[in-house]
């Protein structure tokens, strides 16, 4: 007897899917080196884009070392994660954590599994497509450090890359390695297109640059051959913000918050001059007493 049960494989549905109208822009925040501020930057860019009224989701690709939830301040509300969605253990909407500050901002947490193969290219692609179908305008992918699978998948579907760099030799070198991968190991590269790359300098200390102790913006730009989308000064508020789970961009009294706000505006096409990149001139008494 001939079976009449329809058993069409799920993958076949991709071909007959109607053309999507709303294609979300995928931005990867990457660096190669760890500890340079990728997650801090992802959280602030996502909040900044949301503050501009964009519908945004920020995804933690650091499987096994989830941290974006802490920086975003939603760690106690994580029920389902990225890998649960990929494995169909929940649907996408169940896994999206709505931000408490912005109605149009969502977080997708990384899984804490130790299985390095939990993320698959097909799984990630499906989620990104579904997010686009759901009307998201920006998908911010917080890449893990290194050049392993998680970092590869975070950048693979990117339209743009924000390369986070500290003005320091190992960070600059690793960033150049990442630039090499962005121009060869991404979907855009495979299609003969380019990922639009932006340089974001963090932990910048104008004082140390002036005294000749730190690479300047121009130095890093020259070595990497990239345009600067933002320069975040070394500031105490960055640590305070992560302590309290409030992305630093929300602290508009801090220089770091304002610098991130500028970076977001530039990503959206606005022209803004760099701020906090030169030593602030102190008055006579401040100079005398080291204030």
């Amino acid at each position: 007897m001939v079976s009449v049960i329809p058993t069409a494989p799920v993958t076949n549905t991709v071909a007959i899917k109607p053309e999507r109208k709303n294609l979300a822009e995928v931005i990867v925040v990457t660096s190669g080196k760890g500890g340079v501020g990728k997650t801090t930057t992802s959280a602030s860019l996502a909040c900044g884009l949301a503050r501009h009224g964009k519908k945004v989701v920020v995804i933690d690709f650091d499987v096994g070392l989830r941290n974006l939830d802490l920086i975003m301040g939603c760690e106690r509300r994580v029920v389902y994660d990225f890998v649960n969605v990929i494995n169909n253990e929940c649907n996408l909407r169940q896994a999206l954590i709505k931000d408490k500050r912005f109605d149009n901002l969502f977080v997708l947490a990384a899984s804490q599994t130790r299985d390095k193969d939990a993320l698959t290219k097909e799984g990630v692609e499906k989620i990104l497509n579904d997010l686009g179908d759901d009307g998201f305008e920006y998908i911010v992918c917080d890449s893990p450090a290194g050049i392993e699978k998680g970092a590869f998948l975070a950048m693979y579907f990117a339209d743009r890359a924000v390369v986070v760099v500290n003005p320091e030799v190992s960070s600059v070198r690793d960033s150049d390695r990442i630039l090499g991968l962005l121009s060869s190991k991404t979907r855009r590269a495979e299609r003969g297109e380019r990922v639009k790359e932006h340089l974001l300098l963090t932990r910048y200390s104008p004082k140390r640059v002036e005294s000749g102790d730190m690479l300047s913006i121009k130095d890093v730009q020259e070595i990497l051959g990239l345009d600067v989308v933002g320069v975040i000064p070394e500031a105490p508020e960055v640590l305070q913000s992560s302590n309290s789970g409030e992305p630093v961009i929300l602290d508009m009294n801090s220089q770091a918050g304002q610098a991130y706000d500028d970076a977001v505006a530039r990503l959206l096409g606005e022209k803004r001059p760099l701020r906090f990149t030169t030593v602030e001139k102190k008055g006579f008494f401040a100079k005398l007493f080291g204030g």
Binding site: R173, D176, G212, D213
Partner: peptide
């Protein structure tokens, strides 16, 4: 502060960093 002159004169290491990076990045 007032007594800055007592501190050791800083070495300008940023230019060394830049030169080293230029070479290694080009090579890689």
């Amino acid at each position: 502060g007032l007594f800055d002159f007592l501190r050791a004169k800083p070495k300008h290491t940023a230019s060394i960093a830049k030169e080293r990076l230029r070479i290694i990045v080009a090579q890689e």
